[in-house]
């Protein structure tokens, strides 16, 4: 690592659709997957990230740069994460959580999971199905049986949507 020379080391990441990205090593090693490659000396050339597309990787790198620019202040980091995720639709969030999982970035993974969970909070089954396009493949009998088995999950619960 070339921290002593004053010029920060830059890594080149390659998405699965062959886009190349330059990113400061200090930001990229937020990903444990990338950090391990750097530590094993496999980061000399281009680092291929086979499970992440260019659009998602660009977004993840924006996050890496943003969060690593914030000094050790958990509150500021949290508010950056909230802001970063605030305008993302579910498609993007799903791509992001998969990428975070693959790159082993627990802080991003936590934030995206929490954000998706937040959408489901206090909502009825019908609302969640519609919101996420979940196709109900239960037969009426099956659904009744699952509902019966999980009767306790409907007790004392108020949802804040119409259905």
């Amino acid at each position: 690592m070339a921290a002593e020379t004053g010029t920060p080391t830059t890594l080149t990441l390659k998405s699965n659709d062959d886009e190349l990205f330059s990113v400061a090593e200090s930001a990229a090693i937020l990903s444990v997957t990338i950090r391990n490659m750097v530590e094993d000396g496999c980061a000399g050339g281009v680092i291929p990230l086979d499970n992440v597309d260019g659009k998602t990787l660009a977004s993840v790198i924006t996050y890496m740069n943003g969060i690593s620019a914030i000094p050790a202040d958990e509150e500021k980091k949290k508010s950056y994460r909230d802001k970063f995720l605030s305008d993302k639709d579910f498609e993007t969030l799903a791509d992001m959580v998969l990428a975070a999982n693959y790159l082993n970035m627990s802080c991003l993974m936590d934030a995206v999971s929490a954000k998706i969970a937040q959408v489901m909070e206090k909502k009825s089954v019908g609302w969640v199905r519609r919101k996420f396009g979940i196709e109900n493949d239960y037969t009426p009998e099956e659904e009744a049986a699952v509902k019966e088995e999980h009767k306790w999950t409907f007790e004392g619960v108020e949802t804040d949507d119409d259905n």
Partner: peptide, 11 residues
Amino acid sequence: KEAGRTSVLSS
């Protein structure tokens, strides 16, 4: 309870 309720979403 909320987590359990997702069991009704689909198989």
